[in-house]
């Protein structure tokens, strides 16, 4: 039964994630004074990609890469509470399980892209990993005060502790929240930090050799990834009390990110990393100091 439940759950999140991507395209189009594709367009894209025949495979790891990527993000999803709607397995893990599962996806993708023997792919991966030195640490530092203040490492408990509006971590720890927002932009790979894909520069980076169903996998990976990444942020900073609030929260966080994306140029890689070590790091440290002072 729970397996079926999990299927539906995954399907739901995948579809919602794809719709988010559609919204993003629509919003970007409107920002650019265009009409834009229908919101469900990414679903069609994914279906089309899965319907393609003979995608090129460069070897076992290249084949398994997208599969592992989806595995990682799916597994993460299972440990992530969608609001206080209890996830299947939230009680068996906490922040660190989620954080470490979260990298399984990129790792799988990196391994797959690596085997394609294309330098563009590897450059993309190198950038992606280097970017982690920027946003991942900021994200982590931004969330730490919340966990520390609530004396838990469980995301679910953090959600429960936040209860209603005035107790939101976003309000209690505004400095950390701002730092977290910076990090989310990088976490989602949106535009000033869109160095990994950079289609005009490195021909879509890691995906350069992926077509057909591999690309389809990567699309749904990205879709679930959006929910998981923004969801993590929302869970920690807004403590959504039910699944609806969860999706509303993630939607708005994602929307903000997309809007920034629509009007931004792209950093060079070292600029991007250094950017995070500047103001966001300062904010993150101040946030930590704040929790020390308030405790």
């Amino acid at each position: 039964m729970s397996i079926l439940y999990f299927f539906l759950y995954l399907l739901l999140v995948t579809i919602v994630g794809l719709l988010y991507m559609g919204v993003a395209r629509k919003v970007t189009a409107h920002v650019q004074n265009r009409y834009g594709p229908p919101i469900y367009q990414p679903i069609l894209d994914v279906l089309k990609l899965f319907g393609k025949k003979d995608a090129a495979s460069h070897g076992v790891m290249h084949t398994l890469g997208p599969v592992i990527a989806y595995t990682g993000i799916g597994a993460t999803l299972l440990f992530l509470p969608l609001g206080n709607h209890t996830p299947l397995l939230h009680f068996n893990g906490d922040l660190f399980v989620v954080l470490y599962l979260l990298v399984v996806g990129p790792l799988g993708m990196a391994l797959g892209a690596g085997e394609s023997a294309n330098s563009n792919a590897t450059i993309g991966i190198a950038r992606a990993l280097s970017m982690m030195l920027g946003y991942e640490i900021i994200f982590f530092m931004a969330t730490l005060p919340v966990f520390y203040a609530n004396h838990t490492a469980s995301i679910y408990k953090v959600i429960l502790a936040q209860g209603t509006f005035p107790k939101w971590a976003a309000i209690m720890y505004p400095i950390s929240f701002i730092a977290g927002l910076f990090a989310v932009q990088g976490l989602l790979g949106e535009k000033p930090f869109e160095l990994v894909i950079a289609p005009h520069e490195i021909a879509s980076g890691p995906m350069v050799e992926y077509g057909g169903k591999f690309l389809g996998f990567l699309q749904i990976w990205h879709a679930v990834g959006i929910i998981v990444e923004t969801g993590l942020f929302v869970d920690i900073f807004f403590g959504p009390q039910n699944i609806l609030w969860f999706f509303v929260g993630t939607f708005f966080v994602f929307l903000a990110s997309v809007l920034v994306n629509a009007v931004m140029p792209r950093f060079r890689i070292e600029q991007a990393v250094r950017f995070y070590w500047g103001i966001p790091l300062l904010f993150a440290i101040l946030g930590i100091l704040q929790v020390y002072l308030w405790r």
Binding site: K48, K52, A55, A56, P199, H200, A203, S204, M207, V208, E209, Y210, G211, G212, L215
Partner: peptide, 9 residues
């Protein structure tokens, strides 16, 4: 538009 032939239809 897509970047590589692998991804294009």
């Amino acid at each position: 538009p897509m970047a590589t032939p692998r991804q294009s239809d």
